[in-house]
Design a protein around this nucleic acid. Sequence first.
DNA 1: GGAATAACAGCGCGTACAGATCGA
DNA 2: TCGATCTGTACGCGCTGTTATTCC
Length: 675
Amino acid sequence: MQLESLLPSLPKTFYTLSSSSSSSSSSLSDSTSPGSTHASTHTSSAHSFGEAERAEHELEPGKKYRSAMMMSSSSSTSGSTGTTTATGGEREGDEFSTGSKSRKSSPVIGGGGAAEEDEELVTRRYGIEELGTDRYFISPSSDASACSLFPYGAQGGSVYGGAGARYSSPYSSAASVLAPPPPPPPPPPGAVCSSRAQLAPPPAASYQFGQGPACLYPSYHPGLAVGRAQVYLCNRALWLKFHRHQTEMIITKQGRRMFPFLSFNIAGLNVSAHYNVFVEVVLADPNHWRFQGGKWVTCGKADNNMQGNKMYVHPESPNTGAHWMRQEISFSKLKLTNNKGANNNNTQMIVLQSLHKYQPRLHIVEVSEDGVEDMGAESKTQTFTFPENQFIAVTAYQNTDITQLKIDHNPFAKGFRDNYDSMYTAPESDRLTPSPTDSPRSHQIVPGARYAMQPFFQDQFVNNLPQNHRLYGGERAVPQTNGLLSPQSDDSSISATSSSSAAQRWFVTPVQQNEADYSVLPYGIKPLPLQSPHSFGYYPESSAFASISAGWSSGRSSYQRKMAAGLPWSPRPSPPSFSFPEDPLTTTTITTSIKDKLQDEGTAVTAGAGGVWGLETASNLKPLDKFDAPYAMVCKRRRLSSGTDASPTIKCEDVTSDDYGKEQPKSYYAFYTSP
DNA sequence: GGAATAACAGCGCGTACAGATCGA
DNA sequence: TCGATCTGTACGCGCTGTTATTCC
């Protein structure tokens, strides 16, 4: 296989994405300006997207156009001043300044990278907290001696243009208003396959300049290079959650799936051309890591001579650009192992070394129809790196925050959720949120569509009930219904939507992965046709997804069978209680029927119990500086509380839960409906 | 002492099977 | 009555994190 021939040179490349101990003081100033610059550049992104979508689909053009206008309007607002993002963040951030200050002292490894940059914008926007200050990105292509540090804010979130795209993007000039980064150092010898320069990590400049947000769908626009891919990390919100605590991935001899797993949307490919899509996992830094004192610290040098397969070719490779762009590209089957003997006979496994930090990278290689790579076409290889995908390989979880996140979000770990039982046996009055297997009809369309979306799209179809439970203690929290996604949530509106948009693609909030878009179009939501497994990034073909989808349709019968007899509440859902966040920046675009419904209901229930969610006050936010060392150690123990006591573990959870709750409005999930 | 490993329990899907239902 | 289809149940499997044990 030709791909393999060019891979051996790759793992030796280090992606030094963060420095946990350095550059802590200048991050804010460094990131603000570039970030705001992005806000302005992304204005065109919103336009492009909206127009592209409008042009491509015939879906209620008026609404779509309106959506685009809303986007651009918002983005104009955000990007007009160059400091709009920061301004907005400060404004809201003031409300939670405690959180802002505390973040810096958190022992939780920030990890740095674009993810945090995004997070900062988001958290500033929502005033949750201020992120860690590690915000420097060492040029991937730089070797140890040539680590070109630059403020990563200019990187523009995670929408990374392909390595080659930077040379052709007509928008690169627009982005050049950013502070010029240091010139990319020459690639280290041996780190780049001579015939595949693009496989080498793109230089910093490429990240910084080559991602004109307006390039989101270049193929839809005349003058844009066709065939230059843009890649979106579909489940980025979840990745960010983990990344905040330094993601850990279990590796076992038999192989362990990643969670979150890699799931991408790809755009900009040549529809008829053939591509191989594969993921490679390379060392992210040259260090050996150890979890000590509640945080990850470096401990010696990494073993860079680890042998074994570092690449996972998507099973559908090779395939056409149309195929890859049609739906999410999920790598859910990818397994991580520390079994060096698994390199040859198991292409589903990637061999890693425990306690090393890794960076997954997505490669898209144009090939001939029979899957043979054209070795003479260097420009046909594109590489994408999402810093929030970084993780430390472990044989056992070290940070209980990560463990809890896994349990709370991974469908396969449902059995470990603390209050799983109580969630389904508590009386209606005590029940915090609908169960995953509640009758789909129970999931009403909620006014805060952005919230309705989150449990599924942001958290990969796992509701956050346990977290909410812990977060709010016994207090009634807002049910995070799966409203819009529920197959039967709102029959009339959904069916109408479905009938008009079947087989068409929808973007919940378009342009995710872009910090500017965070502030510009945080909640833009399109009406959602009924989802097929392909619509969801997680376990699209696996049992996990099926369990969820089944739970909402016929498959839920099993649960209902189990629960029906003793259910103290009606299988018919309780009336939704939710908040209707009044965010001036909210750009929720939904069908009229839904919208009207939401508005009506929203006004009716905003003051209800659900208001807890939207009206969270600063006093409820726990600063992360509560993570002193001993406390962190306490947190390392598994949390078993049901969430009603005030144990330190709960406090620990509160911190994160608050985060998550507030973070959720980051509805920048992109997805497609199945044809 | 820390990391790696194996065994374990819980969960849910997929499948096979049996029984019930329906139409020819 | 027979065959096709649908429904319900049981079991196996793969997934998960936890826990105890072993290894270095």
